[in-house]
Amino acid sequence: MSTSTDTAPATAAAAAPPPPAPAEGWRRYLGAARRPRGAVGLGLLGLLVLAALLVPVFSGGYDQQSATTFAPPSWAHLFGTDELGRDIFVRTLYGLRADLLLLFAGVPIAMAVGTLLGIAGGLSRALGMFLQRVFDIILGFPGLVLGIVIALIMTPGQSALLITIGIVLLPGYGRLARAALLAQEQREYVLAARVLGVPRWRVLVRHILPNSVDPIIVHTAIAMVLAVFLETGLSLVGLGIQPPQPSLGTLLNTGVRFLSLAPVYVLGPTLILLMLALAFSLLSDALNEAVTGYDR
């Protein structure tokens, strides 16, 4: 003879849906590339990445000097030359290469750590509140100011930039994960899993985290734009990548000093910087449309 207590686990099991299939999520994300914004953004980003990868093939290096200084743009030097006769176009592509390495290393680290910290709040209410206060403290510092502090503590360069990008972007991912956690905790499939006695950490990993991926993926494209301007801002004040190695911010920092002699000096790096930011912005819009199903 069965009792209501005996039927509760069976009812809970029936109410608990399986975690979303990874293939379904990937189809949505890949479908963003078929949307106009996604196609343009992905094509633009692909072009920039290809140019950054191939620049060593058709150039002699970013520090190759010549006797022709401040030459205007020409077929030989598309963006002209700088104060040492170096090709600004070549240096811009090497600077783009350095920026992309920072983005594709720093942003995923911030995404992984921030998401795990946000979800970890589900293990303990006190831990969740503590982590939120840590995120609030980080958000209390403007990104550029925090980057300056980190660069002054460390040696200015790629390592300081990488740590700065990771720390500045951390609260965004942590808060998104925390919001997703709070939204999912009261869903039927989570309550059903708890009724079945599933450990809390397993509920977080197997149920809540897979159902919280969409906003995190969309935010990543936005985080890429923030990281680009963060590198540029720190390099503009001389605390980013150090010469002679170029970055987009370093080239702008140097070009501003010679605007009276070569007004076109900063045009090339600025154009590439805007193209990179535009590519990630378009991808963010396309991903948001694909996830929400809303076409603007």
Rank of each mutant, 00 (worst) to 15 (best):
L84D: 15
N288F: 14
S247V: 03
A192C: 04
L271F: 02
D285R: 00
V149K: 01
I109M: 11
P18V: 14
L144E: 07
D295E: 13
I216L: 11
A98D: 01
L139V: 14
A227S: 08
L161T: 12
A23Q: 13
L139R: 14
A180N: 13
T164K: 03
L47G: 08
V90P: 00
H207S: 10
Y94K: 06
A192L: 02
A151N: 02
A151E: 02
L152P: 00
E231H: 14
A160W: 09
P18Y: 11
V190R: 04
A193Y: 02
L176P: 02
H207R: 06
I208D: 02
G128D: 12
F258L: 12
L101F: 06
A126Y: 02
T270I: 06
L226H: 10
G95T: 08
G268M: 11
A120G: 15
G25Y: 11
Q65C: 07
V55K: 04
P36L: 05
A23C: 09
G197D: 01
L252S: 11
G249N: 10
H77R: 13
L48Q: 08
L152N: 05
F258C: 11
A23F: 10
M154Q: 04
I163M: 08
V225N: 12
I137F: 13
A10G: 00
I241D: 04
G166Y: 03
R86P: 06
R91I: 08
M111S: 13
A223L: 05
T220S: 05
A151D: 01
A177K: 13
L131Q: 05
A8V: 05
P246H: 01
G118I: 07
V113S: 11
E24R: 15
P243M: 03
A13W: 03
L196E: 08
L93P: 00
T81N: 02
R257H: 10
W26T: 14
V90E: 04
D6T: 07
L182K: 05
S4R: 15
G172H: 12
W75F: 15
P263G: 10
L248C: 05
L102E: 12
E83P: 12
T68Q: 06
A32E: 09
G147M: 02
